[in-house]
Design a protein around this nucleic acid. Structure first.
Length: 874
RNA sequence: GGGCCCUUAGCUCAGCUGGUUCAGAGCACCUGCCUUACAAGCAGGGGGUCACUGGUUCGAACCCAGUAGGGCCCACCA
C-alpha cells in the first residue's frame, strides 16, 4: 500500500461504481423525500470556482440526506441562457462569415442547437469529476420539449388570468444583442463623463436658453425644453418656443415641477424617446416622440448627416459641430451612472417598444408573506431577507419578451393589424380556433396567423424549474411532483436572488400554492487572494479540472468548504486545497496503520479500553455539534468539527493510545472496536470526501454493492458520559506537561521517566496507564511531599514531579512557580471581588455564582500547592 | 439619495440567549524531531487594547448612541 493517497487512480472507478449500481437514482417510495434541484448552469458554460463551491455544498447535503435514510433526489440540468448563448452563436457564425440576418429563424435555431449539442453538457460531465451525486436520469434542459411546453402553458395560463399584457413601454434595450432586458439584467456603473451646456435660440429673438445634458447627440430627438414654473430666471420665457440647434426644429418651452432648479442651469431638454423621465414628461405635456436610433443604436434618418453612425461616435462629432457653431457654452466633468447589459456589457438605451409584461404586484403577495411572515421559506444567511423584502415590496412588472430566437417563442398569434388582433394559445391549432371566434372570421386558416417573433426571457423558464422538472405544470397531480415537491434546500449565489430565487417563490405559490423549497443557502462569491472577483478577463480563475487533477476531488471539496461560511465571500487560495489533500492523506495513513496490525486473541490493555470509551464519548459529543452546525447550514463548521475529530482526537490521541508496541500484535477486542470507530468516522466524512472514504470502506472488508458506503447509515447519537471527556482532558494536560519537560530538557522519547504526583485533585487514577504509555514512564507514584531534585509542573491543584539526574536549576523552578503563583493570585482576587459584590451575588443567576465559587476554590487549592512547593524549594 | 451588513491573532473566520479560564479555531509562523501509519508528518511554543469614543448593566467582543474605515443591494435626477 502506497504511503501517499492517490486520488487519480480511484476516483473514476468509484464514480462508475456508484453509477452502475444506480445509487443516485431516485423514484418515489415510502421514505421521506429529500430533494434539491440544481441551479441549472448555462448549457454552454464550463465549470468555474463558483460552480465548484455551490455544487460541493449541494452534494454534501444530498449525500448526508442519503446516509440518513432519506430518499435523496438531486435533479441536474442546464439552462439555455438565451442572450448569452445566442450571442455566442452569432459570434461563431460571424467568424464563419455568416450573418444572423441572412439566416431564417429555423436555420439559426439549427445552428444554435448544433452548438448546444457540441458544447452543451460539458459542465455536467465536469460535475461528475467533482463527485456530484445527481440523479442523471433526470437531467433536464430548459429547452427540452416538455420543459418548453410547461413554459408555454404557464404563459397561457397567466395570460388568461389577465396577468400578462402587451404594452408599448420604455424598456432597457441592449443594442448589441438587439433585445430588451429586464430591469434586473441592467447593471449600473459609475462612469466619468461630461455635462454639456448647450444654448438653444429662442424663437423670434436673439436670446438663448442654456440647458445641461449628458447626451448631446439626442438633441435631434428633442421635443421640448422644460423649466421649473417657480424659477424666476426663466419666467419671461414661459409660453415661448426654442429652436433645436443643427436640425432647427422649433419646440415648446414647457413648465414642470419635476425640474430641479439647483442642477445644471435649472432647465432641461426633453427627449421622450430616449429617457424614461422625459417620456413621462412627454405624455403629461402631450409632446411628440422622436426616436432617432436604429436597433443597433446608430442614428436613423432623424440623425440627418449623422445617420448610420453609432451614438458615441455622434456624441463626439456633434459636440465638435456644436462648438464650432457656437451652441456649446461649456462642458463640466460629471459622474453619471450608465446602465450596461449584464450579458453583453453594452451600454443600455432606454427604448420605446411593444413588449410583453407580467404583472407582479399581486403575484408577489404570497411570496412576501411566505418568507417574511410565515417563515415557510428560510434564507441563510438571514440578512438576505431584507434585500428580498425591499425588492418584493417595490416590485415592478416583469418584461418577459426578448427579441431573440433562442428560447421559447411567445405563443401569441396575430390575425390582423389592430392592437388587439391577436390570441394566445398553447398551439397554432388552438390559436386558430380562438382567432376564428375573436375575429368573427370562420375562414381564417393557419397561414393567416403570424406568431409573435419574440421569445421569452430565460428566467421565465427557470422560475418554473422546481415544478417543471417534475412535470408539475403540465400534470399538476402526477406522482412525482406530489412526492418531491416542495423541494428541501436550494443552494445558489446571492447574485440571482431576484432573477431566480424570488421568482421561483412567486411561481411556487402561483402554480402550486406551496413554497418551492424550504431553505435557501446563499454561497458567497469566490474571489482570489487579493479579494478580486474571479473572472476570465483577469485570468485569476484556476482551471477547475486541473485542481481536481492536482489535489483530488476530495481535496478540492474540503479546501473549498473549509473557509466558506454561508453568504461570506471565499478568498480562494490553492493552499486550501493542499490542506484538503493533506487531510485525505492523513486519513489514508490512518487506514494503513490499521491494515498493518496483526490481530491476536489477547487481553485488552486497560489503556485501550479507556481510550476507546473516551473516544466514543467524544465522537457523540462531536456528532451533536455536527448536527447542530448542519441544522444551521454551517457547513464549514461541520467539516471543521469532523476534521478535528479525525485528525486530533482519533489519529493523534486514540490511535496512539491503542497502538501496540513495535512488531507486537493488537488484541482482538480493541482492533474490532477501532475498526468500528474508523467506519463511523468514514460515514461522517463521506459527504465531504466521497471518493477517499468509499475507497477505504471497500478495503476494510469485502462488501456487497448494498453495503457500499454511499448508501450506508449515518451514525445515530448515543448518550455519553461527560466525565469521560473531562477526565481525558485532564490526563491530556498531564501528558502535555511531561512532553514539555522532555522537550525543554532534550530528553529523548526512548528514555524512561519517573513521575510522582502530589495532592488531591480528585482525578481518576485509571488514566495513569494512558499517561504512562504516551509519555514512556517507568513508574508513577503518589507522594505526600514535594520531591527534591525534580522538575515540576501543575495541572489544576495537582503537582507533578519528574526527578532529574544532574543539577536542577532551582532558581528557574522557583521563578516559574512564582509566576504561576502571581497569576493565580491575581485571578483569585478578581473572582473574590466579583463574589464580594453584593449586587452580583443578588442579581446573577445561581449557576454563574456557583461557578465563580468553584473558580475561587480551585484557585485557592492551586495557591496552596504552589506555596508548598516554594517552601520545599527554598 | 435610501436601505442592509461588516471591522476579533500575520491571513481567513467562529464566538448562537450578555455570565464556564472567554478572548477561540484553522492556516501561517517559531523551536525540536527522518520516533517502525503519515515530513502531505509528530511534539512543543509565541501571537489579539475584540476599529474608536461614550452609555446601559453586578457583569459587554456581544446591548444602545456616535465616530472612522470597508463592503453589498436598491433608486429615473438631466
Amino acid at each position: 500500500m502506497p504511503s501517499k493517497y492517490e486520488p487519480r487512480k480511484i476516483e473514476n472507478h468509484w464514480y462508475n461504481y456508484w453509477m452502475e449500481h444506480n445509487y443516485f437514482h431516485s423514484t418515489p417510495d415510502n421514505r421521506e423525500p429529500y430533494t434539491i434541484v440544481i441551479p441549472p448552469p448555462n448549457v454552454t458554460g464550463i465549470l468555474h470556482m463558483g460552480h465548484m463551491l455551490n455544487n460541493t455544498i449541494q452534494d454534501v447535503l444530498i449525500r448526508r440526506a442519503r446516509l440518513m435514510g432519506k430518499n435523496a433526489c438531486w435533479v441536474p440540468g442546464t439552462d439555455h441562457a438565451s442572450i448569452a448563448t445566442e450571442a455566442k452563436v452569432v459570434a461563431k457564425l460571424k467568424e464563419e462569415g455568416i450573418e444572423k440576418a441572412d439566416l431564417s429563424r429555423e436555420d439559426f435555431l439549427k445552428h444554435a442547437g448544433d452548438w448546444t449539442h457540441e458544447y452543451g453538457g460539458v459542465i455536467l460531465e465536469q460535475l461528475k469529476k467533482l463527485g456530484c451525486s445527481c440523479d442523471w436520469e433526470r437531467t433536464k434542459f430548459t429547452l427540452d420539449d416538455d420543459m418548453s411546453e410547461s413554459v408555454i402553458s404557464a404563459f397561457v395560463d397567466l395570460f388568461n388570468k389577465g396577468l400578462i399584457y402587451r404594452g408599448y413601454r420604455m424598456v432597457n434595450w441592449d443594442p448589441e444583442a438587439q433585445t430588451t432586458l429586464s430591469d434586473e439584467e441592467v447593471i449600473y456603473e459609475e462612469k466619468q463623463g461630461l455635462l454639456y451646456y448647450l444654448a438653444y435660440k429662442i424663437e423670434g429673438s436673439d436670446e438663448t436658453i442654456t440647458i445641461a445634458t449628458t447626451r448631446p447627440e439626442t438633441i435631434l430627438g428633442d421635443a421640448a425644453i422644460c423649466i421649473n414654473p417657480n424659477d424666476e430666471r426663466y419666467s419671461h420665457l414661459k409660453g415661448k418656443r426654442a429652436i433645436v440647434p443643427i436640425c432647427n426644429r422649433v419646440i415648446p418651452i414647457i413648465e414642470d415641477g419635476y425640474v430641479d432648479v439647483e442642477f445644471g442651469t435649472g432647465c432641461l431638454k426633453v427627449t421622450p424617446a430616449h429617457d424614461i423621465n422625459d417620456k413621462a414628461l412627454g405624455e403629461k405635456h402631450n409632446l411628440e416622440t422622436i426616436d432617432i436610433f436604429n436597433a443597433d443604436a446608430s442614428l436613423n434618418s432623424f440623425g440627418l448627416h449623422y445617420e448610420g453612425k453609432d451614438r458615441f461616435v455622434v456624441r463626439k462629432e456633434i459636440t465638435k459641430e456644436l462648438e464650432e457653431s457656437g451652441f456649446l457654452v461649456k462642458t463640466e466633468q460629471h459622474i453619471n451612472k450608465v446602465g450596461t447589459s449584464e450579458r453583453t456589457k453594452a451600454v443600455i438605451e432606454p427604448r420605446l417598444s411593444d413588449q410583453w409584461f407580467l404583472k407582479m404586484e399581486d403575484l408577489a403577495k404570497p411570496a412576501i408573506k411566505s418568507v417574511l411572515e410565515d417563515g415557510e421559506v428560510k434564507l441563510y444567511p438571514k440578512k438576505f431577507e431584507n434585500t428580498y423584502r425591499h425588492w418584493m415590496e417595490n416590485i415592478r412588472d416583469w418584461n418577459i419578451s426578448r427579441q431573440l430566437w433562442w428560447g421559447q417563442q411567445i405563443p401569441a398569434y396575430y390575425f390582423g393589424d389592430g392592437q388587439n388582433d391577436f390570441v394566445v394559445a398553447t398551439t397554432p391549432e388552438k390559436a386558430l380556433e380562438a382567432a376564428k371566434i375573436k375575429s368573427g372570421n370562420a375562414n381564417l386558416s393557419i397561414k393567416d396567423l403570424r406568431q409573435d417573433e419574440d421569445v421569452l426571457d430565460t428566467w421565465f423558464s427557470s422560475w418554473l424549474w422546481p415544478i417543471s422538472v417534475f412535470n408539475g405544470v403540465l400534470e399538476p397531480e402526477n406522482k412525482e411532483i406530489e412526492y418531491y415537491y416542495p423541494t428541501n434546500d436550494l443552494v445558489t449565489g446571492p447574485d440571482i436572488l431576484f432573477f431566480w430565487v424570488a421568482r421561483m417563490v412567486v411561481s411556487g405559490y402561483e402554480f402550486r400554492d406551496e413554497r418551492p423549497f424550504e431553505n435557501v443557502y446563499f454561497t458567497g462569491l469566490v474571489r482570489d487572494k487579493q479579494r478580486r472577483k474571479m473572472s476570465k478577463s483577469l485570468g485569476n480563475s484556476p482551471d477547475a479540472l486541473k485542481l481536481i487533477e492536482d489535489y483530488g476531488a476530495d481535496g478540492v471539496r474540503v479546501g473549498l468548504l473549509l473557509s466558506s461560511a454561508a453568504g461570506n465571500d471565499l478568498m480562494f487560495d490553492e493552499a486550501l486545497c493542499q490542506q484538503g489533500k493533506n487531510f485525505a492523506n492523513k486519513i489514508w495513513n490512518g487506514f494503513r496503520l490499521l491494515k498493518g496490525w496483526e490481530v491476536e486473541d489477547l487481553p485488552q490493555p486497560e489503556a485501550s479500553k479507556l481510550g476507546i470509551a473516551w473516544y466514543n464519548a467524544k465522537f457523540n459529543k462531536t456528532l451533536e455539534e455536527i448536527e447542530n452546525h448542519f441544522s444551521k447550514y454551517r457547513i464549514s463548521d461541520a467539516l471543521m468539527a469532523i476534521y478535528k475529530l479525525v485528525w486530533d482526537d482519533y489519529s493523534s490521541w486514540l490511535l496512539e493510545i491503542v497502538k501496540p508496541a513495535y512488531q507486537h500484535p493488537i488484541d482482538k477486542i480493541s482492533y474490532e472496536a477501532i475498526i468500528h470507530i474508523f467506519e463511523q468516522n468514514l460515514k461522517l466524512l463521506h459527504p465531504f470526501m466521497p471518493f477517499l472514504t468509499e475507497e477505504i470502506w471497500q478495503h476494510i472488508e469485502e462488501r456487497s454493492p448494498e453495503e457500499a458506503l454511499v448508501v450506508s447509515k449515518w451514525p445515530s447519537f448515543v448518550k455519553f458520559e461527560e466525565s469521560l471527556i473531562k477526565d481525558f482532558d485532564f490526563a491530556a494536560e498531564v501528558i502535555s506537561g511531561i512532553r514539555t519537560i522532555r522537550k525543554e530538557k532534550n530528553i529523548p522519547m526512548k528514555e524512561y521517566l519517573e513521575l510522582s504526583i502530589l495532592n488531591g485533585e480528585k482525578v481518576a487514577k485509571d488514566w495513569d496507564v494512558v499517561i504512562s504509555k504516551l509519555t514512556n514512564l517507568s513508574s508513577i507514584s503518589y507522594v505526600d511531599n514535594a520531591v527534591d531534585g525534580a522538575l515540576s509542573f501543575r495541572v489544576k491543584s495537582n503537582e507533578y514531579f519528574i526527578p532529574m539526574s544532574g543539577a536542577i536549576d532551582v532558581d528557574a523552578e522557583i521563578k516559574k512557580i512564582q509566576e504561576e503563583l502571581k497569576y493565580t493570585k491575581g485571578f483569585l482576587t478578581s473572582v473574590q471581588k466579583k463574589l464580594s459584590n453584593e449586587r452580583f451575588v443578588n442579581n446573577a443567576p445561581e449557576q454563574v455564582i456557583a461557578l465563580e465559587r468553584k473558580k475561587q476554590a480551585d484557585a485557592e487549592a492551586k495557591i496552596e500547592t504552589l506555596e508548598k512547593s516554594l517552601v520545599s524549594l527554598t
